[in-house]
Each structure stands twice: as structure tokens, then as C-alpha cells.
Lab assay of single mutants.
Amino acid sequence: TETRTFTDEREARRFEQEARDNGKDVQVRESNGKFEVRVK
């Protein structure tokens, strides 16, 4: 599991989409204006 934290939602979404395109299981959590993207 890899976790990346972004402050920019667009960057978080781009990373999320890229991971999904690669067939990964992705979860995005938002807290305090930060976006935590977990990739399995």
C-alpha cells in the first residue's frame, strides 16, 4: 500500500486516475484540506 498526500485536489485526482488506469485499488480521503490517496 502506498499513500500520497496532496494539497492540490487536481493533483490528487490526476494521481488517482493514473492509478485506476493501471488497475490499482484506490481510496481518496480528504481531511483538513489535504487529500490522502491510498493505492493498493
Rank of each mutant, 00 (worst) to 15 (best):
T1A: 11
T1S: 11
T1G: 12
E2N: 09
E2L: 13
E2F: 09
E2C: 15
E2M: 12
E2Y: 10
T3Y: 09
T3L: 12
R4Y: 15
R4T: 10
R4N: 08
T5N: 10
T5F: 15
T5G: 07
T5S: 12
F6R: 04
T7E: 14
T7A: 10
T7W: 13
D8K: 00
D8W: 00
E9A: 07
E9K: 04
E9V: 06
R10M: 15
R10V: 14
R10Q: 14
E11Q: 06
E11V: 03
A12E: 02
A12L: 04
A12Y: 02
R13I: 08
R13W: 03
R14E: 13
R14N: 10
R14K: 13
R14F: 08
R14Q: 12
F15G: 02
F15Q: 03
F15T: 03
E16H: 01
E16D: 03
E16R: 00
Q17L: 06
Q17R: 08
Q17P: 01
E18L: 10
E18D: 09
E18H: 09
E18R: 06
E18F: 08
A19M: 15
A19Y: 04
A19Q: 13
R20I: 10
R20M: 08
R20S: 05
D21R: 14
D21S: 12
N22F: 07
N22Y: 08
G23C: 11
G23A: 04
G23H: 08
D25H: 12
D25N: 09
V26K: 01
V26G: 01
V26Q: 01
V26D: 01
V26W: 00
Q27S: 13
Q27F: 12
Q27G: 05
V28D: 01
V28K: 03
R29W: 11
R29V: 15
E30P: 06
E30V: 14
E30H: 11
N32D: 12
N32A: 05
G33M: 01
G33E: 03
G33S: 02
K34V: 15
K34L: 14
K34W: 12
K34P: 01
F35Q: 02
F35W: 15
E36I: 13
E36G: 01
E36P: 02
E36N: 02
E36L: 07
V37D: 02
V37T: 02
V37M: 00
R38M: 14
R38A: 10
R38N: 09
V39G: 02
V39F: 06
V39H: 02
V39M: 06
V39E: 03
V39C: 03
V39W: 05
V39A: 05
V39N: 01
V39R: 00
V39T: 09
K40Y: 07
K40T: 15
K40R: 13
K40C: 15
K40P: 05
